[in-house]
Amino acid sequence: KRLSEREFDPDIHCGVIDLDTKKPCTRSLTCKTHSLTQRRAVQGRRKRFDVLLAEHKNKTR
């Protein structure tokens, strides 16, 4: 699936709103397109961004 077609989940996706499409970014939490500050500011996550990021990195090892 293309990035734009993915169902957005704030707990596994970057989530920064794309200015062109007005939709949240569906790249992983480790997205290189958006800064850490931008990704931390995303609302609606179950846990703090840093906790989710650490969990994500542990899963992908």
Rank of each mutant, 00 (worst) to 15 (best):
R2H: 13
R2G: 14
R2W: 04
R2A: 14
R2C: 05
R2Q: 15
R2S: 15
L3C: 06
S4M: 10
S4H: 12
S4I: 06
S4A: 07
S4V: 09
S4K: 12
S4N: 08
S4P: 08
E5Y: 09
E5A: 09
R6M: 14
R6A: 15
R6G: 15
R6Q: 12
R6E: 13
E7W: 07
E7R: 11
E7K: 13
E7V: 09
E7S: 14
E7Q: 13
E7G: 13
E7C: 09
F8A: 05
F8W: 07
F8G: 03
D9M: 09
D9C: 15
P10A: 08
P10M: 06
P10Q: 05
D11C: 05
D11R: 04
D11P: 01
D11K: 04
D11V: 03
D11H: 06
D11N: 15
D11T: 07
I12M: 14
I12K: 11
I12W: 10
H13V: 04
H13S: 05
H13P: 00
C14Y: 00
C14P: 00
C14E: 00
C14F: 00
C14V: 00
C14H: 00
G15W: 02
G15Y: 03
G15Q: 00
V16G: 01
V16A: 04
V16E: 01
V16S: 03
I17M: 15
I17N: 07
I17W: 10
I17C: 08
I17L: 15
I17H: 10
I17P: 12
D18Q: 15
D18A: 06
D18Y: 05
D18R: 10
D18L: 10
D18K: 07
L19I: 09
L19T: 14
L19P: 13
L19D: 08
L19W: 08
L19M: 12
D20G: 11
D20Y: 07
D20A: 12
T21P: 09
T21Y: 07
T21F: 06
T21I: 07
T21V: 10
T21Q: 07
K22F: 06
K22L: 11
K22P: 07
K22R: 13
K22S: 11
K23S: 14
K23P: 04
K23Q: 11
K23I: 09
K23F: 12
K23W: 10
K23V: 09
P24M: 06
P24L: 05
C25P: 01
C25L: 00
C25F: 02
C25M: 01
C25W: 00
C25D: 01
C25I: 01
T26Y: 07
T26V: 11
T26A: 08
T26M: 10
R27M: 11
R27S: 13
R27I: 06
R27C: 12
S28I: 07
S28E: 10
S28C: 12
S28N: 07
S28Y: 08
S28P: 15
S28G: 12
S28Q: 12
L29C: 02
L29Q: 01
L29I: 09
L29M: 05
L29V: 05
T30W: 08
T30L: 10
T30P: 02
T30Q: 09
T30V: 10
T30Y: 05
T30C: 10
C31F: 00
C31V: 00
C31Y: 00
C31Q: 02
C31A: 00
C31R: 00
C31I: 00
C31P: 00
T33Y: 06
T33K: 11
T33G: 09
T33I: 12
T33N: 08
T33R: 09
H34C: 02
H34L: 00
H34Q: 00
H34R: 00
H34A: 00
H34W: 00
H34P: 00
H34V: 00
S35L: 04
S35C: 05
S35G: 06
S35N: 06
S35W: 01
S35T: 09
S35E: 06
S35P: 10
L36Q: 05
L36H: 10
L36I: 15
T37H: 14
T37R: 10
T37E: 15
T37G: 11
T37L: 12
Q38I: 01
Q38L: 11
Q38G: 04
Q38C: 08
Q38M: 09
Q38H: 05
R39W: 01
R39C: 01
R39G: 01
R39E: 01
R39T: 01
R40F: 05
R40D: 04
R40I: 09
R40K: 10
R40C: 05
R40T: 05
R40E: 08
A41G: 10
A41D: 13
A41M: 13
A41H: 08
A41K: 11
A41C: 07
V42M: 01
V42D: 02
Q43G: 10
Q43Y: 13
Q43R: 08
Q43D: 08
Q43L: 11
Q43N: 10
Q43V: 12
Q43H: 04
G44W: 03
G44A: 05
G44V: 03
G44D: 05
R45Y: 01
R45L: 01
R45K: 01
R46E: 12
R46V: 09
R46G: 12
R46Q: 12
R46I: 06
K47V: 11
K47L: 11
K47W: 04
K47T: 08
K47A: 13
K47I: 08
R48G: 15
F49D: 04
F49M: 05
F49C: 04
F49Q: 03
D50E: 09
D50Q: 02
D50M: 03
V51W: 11
V51Q: 15
V51R: 10
V51M: 12
L52E: 03
L52M: 12
L52N: 02
L52G: 02
L53G: 02
L53T: 04
L53W: 05
A54L: 09
A54Q: 12
A54D: 13
A54H: 14
A54F: 11
A54N: 09
A54I: 07
E55G: 05
E55K: 04
E55W: 04
E55Y: 11
E55N: 06
E55A: 06
E55D: 08
H56T: 09
H56F: 11
K57Q: 13
K57H: 15
K57G: 14
N58W: 07
N58S: 15
N58Q: 15
N58V: 09
K59A: 15
K59R: 14
K59H: 08
K59N: 15
T60Y: 04
T60C: 08
T60K: 04
T60N: 12
R61Q: 15
